[in-house]
Amino acid sequence: MDNKPLKRSAYLKSISRDHHHGLLFCWKIREGFKRGVAADRIKQYADWFWRAHLIDHFALEERYIFPVLGDGHELVKRALAEHRRLKRLFEQETEVWRSLSLIEEELDEHIRFEERVLFSELQRVATTPQLAEIAEHHGGAAHAPEWGDEFWKD
């Protein structure tokens, strides 16, 4: 695989920053696992991150990004299926360790897919007005305050 950095459209950079925060979220879960942090602490953080960040992020992608490629596009079908799967995992209240482990793995993979594959295709086919509309709607997104329990540092 080519490890050369991807050139991201200026219109998509703020969404890519969201993806960076998602990758950092995955890293924090991995660190919590390594440090033997109680599952309920990590689950509280995951629930907060889902509500404070991912629900709106997924909605933005589904409303403004995916339609540029079209509902029938294979990359969009995959992304939507992954969104549904991740939603189920975040809402899972039993088998917490297993769900957190799957969230960490699948969200990391999903973000890398969107950044490397889906966004590359989007940049290839989208018009400047379409990209500007995406940026306009994302630019108004409010960001929640940071989570207080830094369990990944224990």
Rank of each mutant, 00 (worst) to 15 (best):
W27S: 05
L69M: 07
E104I: 06
G140V: 13
F113K: 01
G140T: 13
L12A: 00
H143Q: 11
G148C: 11
E61I: 00
E91G: 12
F33G: 07
H19Q: 00
H20R: 11
R51S: 14
K13H: 11
Y64E: 00
A141G: 07
H73R: 01
L107H: 02
I15E: 12
D40I: 13
F113C: 06
K13G: 06
K7N: 06
R35D: 09
G148H: 10
L60A: 05
I111L: 11
L122D: 02
D149M: 04
L6W: 08
D2S: 14
D154W: 09
I42A: 05
K87A: 09
H83T: 03
E104Y: 04
I55D: 06
R85A: 05
F151H: 03
R84L: 14
K87M: 10
D18W: 00
R8W: 12
I65V: 15
A46G: 05
E109W: 09
H21A: 14
V76K: 00
F119T: 06
G72V: 08
F119Q: 10
G22E: 01
L118E: 00
D154A: 14
F25G: 02
M1D: 08
A59W: 12
F90L: 02
G36E: 02
T94E: 11
Q123M: 15
V68K: 00
F33C: 12
Y45M: 03
H110D: 02
D108E: 15
D149N: 09
L24K: 09
A39Q: 14
C26R: 00
R112K: 15
F66S: 00
R112G: 08
L100W: 01
K28S: 04
A144F: 12
A144I: 08
L69Q: 00
Q130C: 04
G139R: 03
P5S: 01
D40L: 09
G148W: 08
A132K: 15
G72E: 14
K43F: 04
L102V: 06
V96E: 01
P67N: 01
F119L: 14
G148F: 11
A39V: 11
D18Y: 01
F33M: 11
H143L: 15
F33L: 06
E114I: 02
H83G: 03
R8L: 08
H110Y: 04
A132Y: 07
H83L: 03
D18H: 04
A38F: 07
S101F: 10
E91D: 14
K43V: 05
L23T: 04
G72R: 12
R30E: 13
W147N: 06
Q123V: 04
A59T: 15
W147Q: 05
E115M: 03
W50P: 07
W50C: 14
P67E: 01
F25H: 02
